[in-house]
Structures are given as C-alpha cells and as structure tokens.
Design a protein around this nucleic acid. Structure first.
Lengths: 117, 117
DNA sequence: CCTTGACCTGAAGCAACTCCAGCTTGGTAC
DNA sequence: GTACCAAGCTGGAGTTGCTTCAGGTCAAGG
C-alpha cells in the first residue's frame, strides 16, 4: 500500500513518515517501479508502534536506539525489553501527572462555579 | 523570592520562566533595585498552573489565550472555564492513549518473554 | 579590591515535526 | 495521443517550545 494509506492506518502523518524514514527509524521501505513507497503489513505494524510510543512521549533518540537494536538481531531482545519496561515506568509517571492535573482543574472549575452566569 | 526558588517551587526551569515571561503568558514580574526578578506567591501559583498545563500537553497558544482572559477581568470566566473544560477532555483522551499503549507494551513484552535469557 | 555566585539579555541551537515549491508519474477523458 | 488531474517525490524553509551560550551586572564575603 502507498503512503496515504500507511498514514491513515498507523496514525502518523504523511510528512512524519517520510521524516521518520530519513531519520533512520524505519527499515528501508520498498519502492514501486514508479519510485513511490510501497508499505508492507510489517511496515504498518512498525509505524503503528512508533505512533503509540511517540504519542506517549518517547523521544526519537530512544526510538532510534530501539530500531537499531531491532535490526541487529534477536540477541538484543533483553535490551529492547529494558527500553519497553522503562517506557512503561514513564507511562505510570504520566498517569499520575494526569491525576494531579485533573484534580487541579476540578478545583479551579469549582472556584469558577461560584461566578456562574 | 528569586528565580531559582520560583523554578524549584513551580517545577519549571529557570530559562523556561524567562521564556514564558518574554512570551507574554506571565503577568509582569516585579524587579528589585538590582533589576532581578522577585516572584510573589501569586506568581508562583500561576507558574505552577502553567507547569501542569504544559506537562499535560496544553499548547502555548492556549495558555496565552487563557492568560490574556485572566488579565482582562472576571467577565471572561465563562471563556476560561471553557478552556479548562476542553483541557479536561484532552486529559481523558491522553488517559485512553496511555491505556492503549500500556496494553501494547504488555503484549510486546509477553512476546519477548519467550526469548528470556 | 578581588573573586564568586546568582542573575541578566539577546541570540544561536535543537527536537520533532510541518509546510512549501517545483517536479515525476500513472490514470482517465476527450 | 495529448491534456489534465491526483498522488507522490525531494530538498529546504518555517514553526513550536524550549535550552544553551557568550558576555555582562551586581552584591557580598575574604
């Protein structure tokens, strides 16, 4: 499939996909005779993973490291595991941030309530 | 209190505070005879609010709008309320993103488990 | 008086996109 | 078969939101 579909399936934007390819966090994407990118199902899976990692705040440097490890072979699995576990911890931190912010907003809104109408 | 303390109390960095002031999302900060910034308790409260809004993904444009409204007077409270409510919605979205990503990570890690050692 | 530490400013640098101008290419429409 | 259009391509500029840096001020301690 082509880039437009890859974008809509993965969640990333077209430009972001091209940018990611240039940055080296995608494997080489096959090209058709027309020199346009053709994405495989595995490509889409990878893009989707990147989408969620980005969405939850993983920096590109880490994604890059993860991609390189992935490419290097199965013996890097412990390292990759470590990266994902660390990201899990990061998600926990984010969740408590959300909790905190939600409480704060609720409080602010409760004050504003008094001024209603 | 001075900028270093304001930073450590609010959570923002020193440079970020100066940047926010330049960007117009802070009220004018009082200066001492030495021309250095002196932060009031209200200043710190405002900075802390901004810290949490930023931490949970509010764009500066929105913060700016909020700051301007705040400065304009009490009759803008409905508008400010709207911004905060919208941000609450945004937090909900973030939370489901976290859920989604956590599930994905758990799945990935369960696959890696087989390769253990 | 000299140094040290905290602070100042304006400007450059950086991450991660995002948009743009100008150019192929393949497909349909006359 | 050629005219046109959508979708894709590239290299490069622009944007957001900080972050770092170079060079300078100021007050206090030794």
């Amino acid at each position: 499939m082509r880039i437009a579909e890859a974008a809509s399936r993965s969640g990333l934007g077209i430009d972001t996909i091209r940018y990611y390819e240039k940055s080296g966090i995608l494997p080489e994407i096959r090209r058709g005779t027309d020199k346009q990118r053709r994405f495989s199902v595995e490509n889409i899976e990878w893009l989707t993973l990147l989408y969620w990692l980005r969405e939850t705040g993983m920096p590109m440097k880490t994604m890059h490291r993860f991609a390189t490890l992935y490419h290097t072979g199965d013996h890097t699995i412990p390292l990759r595991k470590e990266i994902l576990l660390e990201h899990s911890e990061h998600l926990k931190k984010r969740r408590t941030d959300l909790d905190h912010c939600e409480k704060m907003l609720a409080y602010k809104l409760s004050i504003y309530k008094d001024y209603e109408k």
